[in-house]
């Protein structure tokens, strides 16, 4: 079905190259279009390219890229899991925010020892994110409200609710921007490599990623998901319980997003701040990475890491040559758009 999915299952080199070719062209087109856009508004396309690459991998920047890749890979997996079965979760933004907000509340207010608090904060954040996504799934199962629309729309009230919490009842009066209080030292995720922004969250997400890739390839559940993605009616005919699968799949997807929210709050932001989780657009890039890979998890992970590098490069580019880094997001969407148009991914059924 997708370039990547086919690629991942075979080992022969020619097929490898053959299926990567459309992606290669799409990236070229993406850069060309972005270069042209930059050029028309009076910015240098060449400078854009060199600064992007330098900013992504040069020296300590590589740690920035890794740190950025952690949430991005997570969000890519959150989007990829349902996509593998041919359904969409466009509401990972809301699930991310809920997870982060709840984790912050537990970490700040639960009367328990530090170690227990941090574990419970992670677990609750994960569960709440999952439950919210599962609610959308229930809407599709029982009331036929399409996930495509409901997941997106459900993000707004979730963000609104969390925003209100930190504006009023839980607000830290000492900071100007609406936030919770700062999470105490003992309840934070520790730095994995001192002096870098990489923390224990890396291990959590790496473990989840390996688990998901393994289950996708080697488990009966993964097989059912994959087959449903290829032909849902066939999967149903063969006895796959479609509704139950939708429910737990959405739960898993939302849980992943919730976990990322918790990890970001406990590991790098140290407080839940209105808008801070969604501002870096992890959801956006994660969804695009998952689409690029056709829902295949390993492909989504690779794409997410590449996108993380691109974005770190984007920051550097913005600092040094004042080309707005949002251009990297334009680049990502053009790559997917180009591939989808050509039918190289997500062929119409």
């Amino acid at each position: 079905m997708s370039a990547f999915a086919g690629l991942m299952r075979t080992t022969k080199l020619p097929q490898w190259v053959g299926s990567l070719l459309p992606v290669f062209w799409a990236v070229i087109v993406g850069f060309a279009v972005c270069g042209a856009i930059a050029g028309t508004v009076g910015l240098s396309p060449l400078l854009m390219l060199t600064e992007l690459i330098k900013g992504a991998v040069e020296g300590p920047q590589i740690f920035e890229t890794v740190a950025r890749a952690v949430p991005l890979v997570g969000m890519a997996l959150a989007a990829a899991m349902p996509l593998r079965a041919g359904i969409v979760n466009l509401g990972t933004d809301g699930q991310l925010v809920l997870g982060g907000c709840v984790a912050a509340i537990i970490a700040l207010y639960l009367p328990a020892p530090d170690g227990v608090r941090i574990v419970l904060a992670l677990i609750t954040g994960t569960l709440v994110g999952g439950a919210y996504a599962a609610l959308a799934a229930a809407g599709e199962i029982y009331a036929r409200v399409p996930l495509l629309v409901s997941t997106w729309l459900m993000s707004y009230p979730a963000k609104g609710l969390c925003g209100w919490l930190v504006h009023a009842p839980l607000a830290d009066p000492l900071v100007a921007w609406p936030s919770t209080r700062r999470i105490p030292l003992g309840t934070r995720l520790e730095h994995l490599i001192p002096g870098t922004p990489i923390n224990d969250g890396f291990l959590l997400i790496a473990f989840a990623a390996i688990l998901i890739v393994f289950l996708d390839r080697r488990s009966s559940v993964g097989y059912e998901l994959r087959l449903r993605g290829l032909n849902e009616r066939f999967a149903r005919y063969g006895g796959v319980a479609i509704d139950r699968q939708t429910f737990w799949l959405m739960f898993a997807s939302g849980a992943m997003a919730g976990l990322i929210g918790a990890v970001l709050v406990l590991g790098s932001q140290y407080r839940f701040t209105d808008g801070a989780l969604t501002a870096p657009q992890y959801t956006w890039s994660g969804t695009l990475a998952a689409l690029l890979a056709g829902g295949e998890p390993l492909g989504a992970i690779i794409a997410a890491v590449l996108f993380a590098a691109l974005q770190t490069g984007g920051f550097a580019m913005e600092r040094s040559v004042e080309i707005p880094r949002v251009l990297t997001m334009v680049l990502e969407s053009i790559v997917i758009l180009f591939l989808a148009m050509r039918g190289a991914i997500w062929r119409r059924r």
Binding site: Y223, E224, R226, L227, L230, N231, R233, F234, Y237, G239
Partner: peptide
């Protein structure tokens, strides 16, 4: 099933995957 390509198989999946359904 009556409609083998729409219901009783997944055209883009391998024979291996198609033959394993129900035994998986």
């Amino acid at each position: 099933a009556e409609d083998r390509s729409r219901t009783a198989s997944a055209g883009t999946a391998s024979a291996m995957d198609n033959l394993a359904l129900g035994f998986h």
